[in-house]
Design a protein around this nucleic acid. Sequence first.
DNA 1: GTGGTCTAGACCACT
DNA 2: GTGGTCTAGACCACC
Lengths: 134, 134, 134, 134
Amino acid sequence: MAFDLRISTGSSTPIFRQIIDQVRLAVATARLKEGDALASVRALAEQLVVNPNTVAKAYAELARDGVIATHQGKGVFIAARRPIYTSAERLRRLEPALDDLVREAIALGFSTDDVQKLVQTHFRKMAGRKDGES
Amino acid sequence: MAFDLRISTGSSTPIFRQIIDQVRLAVATARLKEGDALASVRALAEQLVVNPNTVAKAYAELARDGVIATHQGKGVFIAARRPIYTSAERLRRLEPALDDLVREAIALGFSTDDVQKLVQTHFRKMAGRKDGES
Amino acid sequence: MAFDLRISTGSSTPIFRQIIDQVRLAVATARLKEGDALASVRALAEQLVVNPNTVAKAYAELARDGVIATHQGKGVFIAARRPIYTSAERLRRLEPALDDLVREAIALGFSTDDVQKLVQTHFRKMAGRKDGES
Amino acid sequence: MAFDLRISTGSSTPIFRQIIDQVRLAVATARLKEGDALASVRALAEQLVVNPNTVAKAYAELARDGVIATHQGKGVFIAARRPIYTSAERLRRLEPALDDLVREAIALGFSTDDVQKLVQTHFRKMAGRKDGES
DNA sequence: GTGGTCTAGACCACT
DNA sequence: GTGGTCTAGACCACC
């Protein structure tokens, strides 16, 4: 198996969101490439011990966003990468996470410099790692 | 009034969380100090035009975390400063937000540089403002 | 009620898609404007005699596309209009319908001119009509 | 071979539908005439690298609609031309596709002019090609 | 076998 | 009251 998905049921982020995030990240970091097959809805549901509908919901959103393409009766595949959001929209979608981080950082007494360095190291870590380290 | 709270109903972060965050932030930046009085549950609810239950929920969490102390019949006050976190602990608390941001950013196709610049401008915007303008 | 939604259960287009289409169209033709409230998930489900999940699915997609904004505990509202797709993506999303129409038109022996005129009259009809005529 | 069928797996329209559409189109444009032979189910399945069931399903629908006739042991042939539709009937058959296109176009923010131009270019592309290149 | 849709009913978070 | 998530189980279309 080329790609190992892991979810944590105890987390506050919903399972379907965890699936989406991991697939998107894997695609963005080229761990998954165009044409690669993903586990089928039923197979992944069984593997993660969740309801097939939960997996289907995640796959549906990924398909709507053009990350994957589902082929009836054949399975799910990574689609060609293409920019679908305007730059204003991309910014708008990043903003909540940005707000969260900065608010938290200020409350904890970090400086701009501190945070920028942390962002850089995190970027390297996530873009670089090859597989399932938490 | 020493401290002016502002919430934005249109935001995706719940109102009770906004209240909590702003109080914590004001304490962290010394805009609120030990012994300062906060508006009562009913007064704040009226001022913000939200349900009193929402304010009560926020105050309950702040009290639970030792940020404020409610003195029956007298009102709500900022509690003694909490012990300072070790730097490892501060980092640990920042990690989830950091993870979130970097993951989103990579998925949306932002570069390290992009994000660092965005962090800086957001930092200025939030640290500079004197009270919670959205 | 400012806006009257109608679905047909016999149709091959899924119910949730019919809901999405009608809301998008109403927004695009200014029959629904920023800030207007939509029927609640449960209310609409009851009105259309479908499962609340079906309505929720439609609302979720509309929210993801920035057409509506859902506010926990308060309801669903029309969001500010903003372009979220790149022009290439907009074209890509129109293409299937375009293909369908042209293929059908050719098979039925229509000329380019015929179709262009039909497109124009249909455009006027849909953009102009104020309420639920099929 | 008088007629060269091409399908695109990547498309959202099912393969069996693509086969049907292409045969109907070829008949409507007189590229296929009464009595012309089509490839057998097994031959076509092998040629297109699809499941024979898929081809059989397409041929079944074409036979049901009187477009082709299968002569046991001899093969599949184009049937006598169907009675020409009245112009009202032709319009009625085009309407669903027309509705779909215009609705999508409005929702995506295209103007009448945009769509008319797109219709024209699509028309040229499809009418001009001699056989089904995606 | 595959994914897509819908129903029924549960639990939770927020107001 | 509101919407969000998840489960369980059904039916359909496509390959």
